[in-house]
Simulated assay, not measured.
Amino acid sequence: MGVQHATSAGRLIVVGTPIGNLGDLSPRAIEAFRRADAVCCEDTRVTGKLLAHAGVPKPLVRCDENVIAGRTAGLVERMAAGDTLAFASDAGMPGVSDPGQVLVDAARAAGIAVEVVPGPTACITALVASGIPCEHFFFEGFLPRKAGERARRLAQLASVPGALLFYESPHRVTATVASLAEAYPSREVALCRELTKLHEEVIRGTAAEVLEELETRDEVRGEIVLVVAPPTAGELAELAVRIPGAAGAAGAGVSDLDAALRADIERALADGESASSIAKRLSQRYSRRRREVYAMVVELQAE
């Protein structure tokens, strides 16, 4: 595809924002909002409060997953004409399990400069807070909602040679932890919630022990990150017996995931899903660039 250079006077500034504690808003993030002609965001109420806290009133453009595809072309036109736009998620780094990547890809494709102002990220904060070994890790994002699909995905991830990180909502977390207990009964799990907030909590134990704790509570609040310990050598050996080819996963985790991605693409194509829809859905699930997944879809369609 060749090297791309910015050709526009305007720019897109991707701004990391606090995941709970407003004290984590950086001076550079505030300055980025000041420089912007408008701020694109998932929820105008959430970002409006953040800008009020920073003392930086700005026009807000709603860009959640329901509308961002339809608004991207107009936003790119604004930047091509010279405007500076900031993009902020409700919390954390845009582009990590949120719709911001759509705008970033479109801006780069149009030759518009993209600047990133780093900030807090829930998955890395949770990984460190969990105390689980993190020499290697794989960020999955959200698991499928349906139990069968969730179980199949966890089976595909069983041989990844590192910690696994998942996002989950409070009303689905009990079912997800139950699935973890089925898939990885001997692994340690850390449930991290309300990170950086007053009631921050890390619940750690086997998945069954974490599930037992959740079942004692009337409700679970706050956004949640689940961290699962890497497979042991014994677990990998058992997988090698049950699943031919799983031996050597410690050195082939990436290729295993490529194979899992290709299998998911093939199933989606067989179900009649469009290439663009497959690329959007699976790029988020596998933490890949959408254009990379789209290229794999096109390749498999041609076979």
Rank of each mutant, 00 (worst) to 15 (best):
E77K: 13
I68N: 14
A9N: 15
M79V: 07
G95W: 08
P59C: 10
C63H: 00
V39E: 09
S26H: 06
E42P: 14
E42Q: 12
D64I: 09
L50K: 06
M79S: 04
R71M: 04
K49E: 15
R78P: 03
L12Q: 08
G23C: 06
T47K: 11
L51N: 07
V61F: 04
E42I: 09
A86R: 05
S89K: 07
C40P: 12
A69T: 11
R71S: 04
T44Q: 07
D83V: 01
S89M: 12
A9K: 13
G82P: 02
E77Q: 11
D24K: 01
L22S: 14
K58S: 00
A36I: 13
T7D: 09
A88Q: 01
F33V: 10
R78C: 03
R11F: 13
V56M: 03
R78H: 02
Q4K: 15
F33R: 04
S26K: 06
L51D: 07
A81S: 15
V3H: 06
A69K: 09
E31R: 05
V61K: 02
I30M: 13
F87L: 14
A36N: 11
A9R: 15
R71N: 03
F33L: 07
A6V: 04
S89A: 09
G70S: 08
T7I: 09
L22D: 13
D64E: 09
A6H: 10
A80L: 11
H53I: 08
L75N: 03
P27S: 02
A86Y: 03
R62S: 15
T47I: 11
I68H: 11
P18S: 03
G92S: 09
R62W: 10
G55S: 10
A38R: 12
A36L: 10
C41S: 02
A86S: 09
L60S: 09
G70V: 07
P59D: 13
V3C: 01
R35V: 07
A73R: 14
V14I: 13
G48V: 00
G92F: 06
V39M: 08
P94T: 12
A81R: 15
E42A: 15
L85M: 03
D24G: 04
C63K: 02
P27K: 00
A54H: 08
D24V: 01
P18H: 00
L51K: 02
D43P: 05
V56S: 02
S8A: 15
G74L: 00
R28F: 00
C40N: 08
D83S: 04
D83N: 01
R11Q: 15
Q4C: 12
A52R: 05
L22C: 11
A54K: 06
S8N: 09
R45P: 06
V76H: 08
G20P: 02
G82C: 00
G74W: 06
T47V: 15
V67Y: 05
E77L: 05
A36E: 11
E31P: 00
C63T: 12
T72C: 13
A36G: 10
D43N: 00
D90P: 03
E65R: 12
D37N: 01
E77F: 01
R28P: 04
G55K: 10
T72D: 06
G82Q: 01
C63E: 02
N66K: 15
R62H: 15
T47G: 11
A54V: 11
A32H: 04
C63R: 03
S8F: 03
L25Y: 09
F33D: 01
A91Y: 04
S89N: 05
T17P: 13
G95A: 13
M93D: 08
A6R: 10
G16P: 15
K58F: 00
D83P: 00
F33N: 05
